[in-house]
Structure formats: C-alpha cells, structure tokens
Design a protein around this nucleic acid. Structure first.
Length: 466
RNA sequence: GGCGUGGUACCCAAGUGGUAAGGGAGAGGUCUGCAAAACCUUUAUUCAGCGGUUCGAAUCCGCUCCACGCCUCCA
C-alpha cells in the first residue's frame, strides 16, 4: 500500500488514483531566464523518481510540466542584453533539457509554454471576471481573493494573518492588498499580446491553472513543485482553478524540500548557488542523482562538494559490479532462463519487497537505496562461486536502480580509454608477464601522469580515469 | 510578530511505540611482485538536554537549548 504526505491535508495518505491505473500529474516547470541550479535538479529528480515508481507499479501516467517563458525576469534580461525575450527563454529551455537528460530525467508527456497558450489563458481569465472572481482596472486584471472562501487552505494561513505581511506596489490599484495579478498591462519595452482584456501578458500564477486543466482536466491526481511554491503560487493556483470549476483542483499536493548551502537556503539573492553545468563538469550525473536520493525528498538537503566526492565513490561500487557481471562466464541461453525465472530467487524477491516497502512509505528513497546496497553486497559475495545467482542479483539490482532513475551503464566514463593509453597498458602487461617490475612500475607512473589509475586484476590490467 | 521544520556515530543519513538501515572516512583481512583498486569483516547500550505517559520511547506529551525555513521573486 502506497502512502505519502499530502501538503493539502498535512498528513500521510493512502494513494488512490481518480481513474483506475491512471495518473494525471502536473509539476511546475522552470522560468527559463538563467542556468539551472542544484535546486532544480533536486525537484525534477524527486518528481521523476516518483513518476518512475508509479510506472513500476503499473500506472499509466500523464506528466505535464510547463515552461514559464514570459515573465519579468526574462523581460529584464532581454532588455539588458537587447535581444528578444524568446531568445532568452529558448536558450535556457535548451539548456534545461541537456542537463536534465544527463540526470536521466524522463521527458514529460508535454511541456507546454505560456507564450503558446495565451488564448486559453485569456479565456480562463474572462470566465473568472464573469464569475466575479476577478476585476479589470485600467487593463490590469486581479483575482478577488476575498470571494474565494478556501483561500489559505494549502499553506495553512488565514486572510487576517496574510494582511499583516502584505506589501503593495505603489502603482497598483487593487481592491485588496492580497489580490494578485492575472493579467499585466503592457508597459513600455515589454512584449505583449492583444486581447479582450487589453494589451498585456499573463501573471505568473494563472498559467499553471490553465495549462494543468487544459492538458489534464479539471481535477488532477497529483500536483508537485518545490516547497517555495506553496505560497503564494500553489495557493493561488487552487484559488483560480477552484473558483472557476467549483471542483477540487488537485487531490494530492507533493512538495520537495530546499537545497541548502552551509545550512542556509540556496538562492539567487544570497548568491550561494551552484549551476548544474558547473557541477556536472566535475562529477558524474549519476553521483549527483545518488546524492539527491540519499535524502528524503521533503527534508532540507545540505549540499557540498564533499557529498559528491562520497557519492562518486559510492557510484563506483555499483559500476564495478556491473563490470564484473559482464565478465561472468554465462551463455545467453542461461541468462535468458535466469531472467525468466527471476521470481524463484527467494532472497532477491525478499530484497525487492523491502525496496517497495521503503518506496511505499512516502517515497523513502534513502531506505530503498540501502536495499540496493544489500543486493550489491549479496551479488559481490557470491559472484566468484555462483555466476547464475550473481547474474540474477544483477538483474534485480538493475531493475530497481532504474526505478530510481539510476542508470549505472550510462556512467562508465572509465571505459572511454584512449588508444594511446591502451597501448601503454598492453606494454605494461607484457612487462609484468616478463616479471620486469622496474619497467612495469615506470609505465604505471606514466599512466598516472596521464590521469589514469591502474587496476591489476586476474584478467590483466585495467585503467580508470582519476 | 504569525506559521512551520530539523537536531541520530568522526562526517552524511534512514527510522513515525517493540529494542539503532545504508553510505563516506577509520581499523583489520583477502587478493597482489609491490602498490593501487576491488571485495569481505568491523565501528552508537544510544538518538540535543530535562521531566512525563507506557510493560516498552530516537519515535507520543510538556518545558529548555541550538540551527534553519516561509510570511516578497524563487524548484
């Protein structure tokens, strides 16, 4: 039985999809105005892992993730660099895919862009105005918060509390300081769309309500995003959607915790952020994914280089085992038979069950990962004595690793050995066979200088990038 | 001020009432010409502190101390 924490009800709940075996899931995407950082990686790894687990359980999932490709930050940057706003957004959308592909994050079923859905957004806002949930002042349209009774139910706030902290821009003429913009009137040097609401562009929150309901229907199973979006973004999404449809917008809300640097929240304003480009230049993507999965998704996660060093070593334990499995002396027919009879390996079935128990308990990837280590150790212990059992443990390990999005075969950087290095390795093997230790040690030093560590095994010398 | 989260070994980290998973580092071992790597074994009578509830608490309750987040753009 799968249960997980629902931000809306503030407790763990058993999961039941609206339609049998089908899940409609929406996760807030990025605003493409700059390179992705480790916080983005955490969010999308978390929801990718959740998605993969649902698929493993047999659900058919429709996963939608938007791009907020028109926004103040993009406009500011495009004005500063004197290029069109979409040049900025397209550049960073391309970057997003490159880096997320490296992390083995499955593509969404669709990635709708705000700029391509303006008409739907305008219609949505018009209907809100008609229902008296929104009002237009001089071409700015605001949501009338006081008319939506449930406002605050997600973030656990009430209107009185919120009024205390509310800040109002000087040039805004809202009825109520808590009202938020649905449609922003075009200012000078800003891209705009002509519409019945006036010349302008959508506010931030409205897009997700529109794109989620347009792609998935009025009620969706799961809505996800970073914890920083709970208020006001997700609170406002609920208000807009439920005001219009009078139906529950999302049954389950899932939020991932922040990434911290030295126990402080990582953020642009503090300047303490790391881009994924920088990180992945130094470390294997799967080491990063391993690190992210070691922490429970709802807790804050403290990031540092040390952690990635640790997880690089940890990653090597898995990839080494994969390499050893490839060298097992088993013919294809035997392998096929093992695959077909995997359920007969009771030890492995038990470990697989523990993996699922962990995932069923609020997606406890850390405990699930621990189970992967158990299978790894099991496989390592018997690989010399029982090739068939070792191969079976590899199959189970690989299956479960992939549920977590860990593709250990993608990571063998060390397999890319240049021919020059291979030549030296060959010479060194010859020297060793001739018991010429002086020459062998000399070649080893040369290899080290060239950035390769040697590893002597029974089957000859291998090299690994340092 | 209001709302909320967390403090578990040298470091990271799981644990949600039944007697402390896992990883890194350290130590010992196997292998090896020597190394390195790899693999195996091992490492918390104790969970920030003090009280309480219970047959039983890291887990529940109360207080104290410490760290952090949200209430404004953020994944």
């Amino acid at each position: 039985m799968l249960k997980f924490f629902n931000t809306l009800t503030k407790r763990e709940e058993e999961f039941k999809s609206i339609e049998p075996n089908k899940i409609k899931m929406y996760v807030c995407g990025i605003t493409p105005y700059d390179s992705c950082h480790i916080g983005h990686a955490r969010c999308y790894v978390v929801f990718d892992t959740i998605r993969r687990y649902f698929e493993f359980l047999g659900y058919e999932i429709n996963y939608i993730q938007n791009f907020t490709d028109i926004d103040d930050k993009i406009i500011n940057k495009s004005n500063a660099l004197n290029v069109k706003y979409n040049e900025i957004s397209e550049k960073y959308i391309d970057e997003y895919f490159i880096v997320m592909d490296k992390l083995n994050i499955k593509r969404a079923n669709s990635n709708p862009k705000v700029s391509e859905n303006i008409d739907k957004i305008v219609t949505f806002i018009e209907r809100l105005v008609k229902k008296n949930y929104a009002y237009n002042i001089d071409g700015n349209v605001y949501f009338r918060v006081k008319n939506f009774e449930d406002y605050g139910k997600l973030s656990g706030r009430n209107l009185e509390e919120l009024k205390q902290g509310a800040r109002v821009e000087i040039d805004e003429k809202k009825e109520n300081p808590l009202d938020f913009a649905l449609w922003k009137k075009a200012k000078e040097n800003e891209p705009f769309w002509e519409s019945s609401l006036g010349k302008g562009r959508p506010g931030w929150h409205i897009e997700c309500s529109v794109l989620a309901t347009a792609n998935l229907g009025e009620t969706i199973d799961i809505h996800g995003g970073g914890a920083d979006l709970i208020f006001p973004h997700h609170e406002n999404e609920i208000a807009q959607s439920e005001a219009l449809t009078d139906k529950k917008f999302a049954k389950y809300w899932i939020h991932n915790g922040f990434v911290m640097i030295n126990k402080e929240k990582m953020s642009k304003s503090l300047g303490n952020f790391f881009t994924l480009n920088d990180i992945l230049e130094k470390y294997e993507p799967m080491a990063l994914r391993l690190f992210l999965l070691t922490n429970h998704y709802r807790k804050p996660l403290d990031f540092s280089d040390d952690k990635l060093e640790e997880n690089t070593k940890r990653l090597a334990k898995f990839t080494n085992f994969y390499r050893d499995v490839k060298n097992l002396k088993l013919d294809d027919k035997t392998k096929t038979e093992i695959f077909a009879n995997l359920k007969n390996f009771e030890n492995l079935e038990a470990m697989k069950k523990k993996f699922c128990d962990a995932m069923n308990n609020d997606f406890n990837t850390a405990a699930a990962l621990a189970e992967l280590h158990e299978i790894l150790e099991f496989g390592n212990k018997i690989k010399e004595s029982d090739a068939e059992l070792a191969f079976a443990s590899f199959l189970v390990l690989d299956e479960l690793a992939k549920v977590l999005g860990l593709n250990f075969e993608l990571t063998e950087k060390s397999n890319e050995i240049p021919t020059e290095i291979q030549e030296i390795l060959k010479q060194r093997d010859e020297a060793r066979n001739a018991r010429n230790w002086a020459e062998s040690d000399r070649l080893r030093d040369i290899l080290r200088q060239k950035g390769f560590e040697v590893k002597d095994t029974k089957n000859g010398t291998q090299a690994m990038k340092i």
